[in-house]
């Protein structure tokens, strides 16, 4: 089954990012394809490489990069939402792509499932 994920909250403030990540890993383990992760609202903050949490905490942006590289899944950030929140190509993690909502429309329509994580 092909699954698209919409993530609408930023890192740390909400558990949404962690749930999305754990769900995606479990879906892949069960043989499904995660087509893409699309970031909207504060979710776009997930792809900032400026993230620098304390050593004993998870680093959410490097975790997304590792996920992207391991499974070849792109992490798309909505361009309009990104511009509002200081996200541009200069701060973008590996595996992150800034794109338009047309990309999201494709993700929402071409997959068997779209699942949303947010607040």
């Amino acid at each position: 089954m092909n699954i698209g994920i919409l993530l609408k909250e930023g890192p740390y403030n909400h558990q949404a990012t962690d749930t999305a990540y754990n769900f995606a890993e479990a879906a892949i383990k069960r043989g499904h394809t995660i087509d893409a992760i699309f970031l909207y609202n504060d979710g776009v903050l997930n792809v900032s490489k400026l993230m620098d949490p304390p050593q004993d905490d998870r680093n959410i942006s490097t975790r997304w990069t590792a996920f992207s590289q391991k499974y070849g899944v792109k992490i798309y950030a909505c361009v309009v939402a990104s511009k509002r929140r200081s996200i541009n190509d200069d701060v973008l993690i590996e595996g992150g792509v800034i794109t338009g909502l047309g990309t999201f429309t494709d993700i929402a329509t071409r997959n068997d499932r779209l699942i949303t994580f947010g607040d």
């Binding site: 769900f23 479990a26 383990k29 779209l114 699942i115 947010g118």
Partner: peptide, 19 residues
């Protein structure tokens, strides 16, 4: 259910994620 059970439910149904 664990995350695997979550995925199984998604296999069986379209999803409405109330936020």
């Amino acid at each position: 259910v664990d995350y695997e059970g979550f995925v199984e439910l998604v296999e069986q149904h379209q999803v409405n994620s109330w936020l």
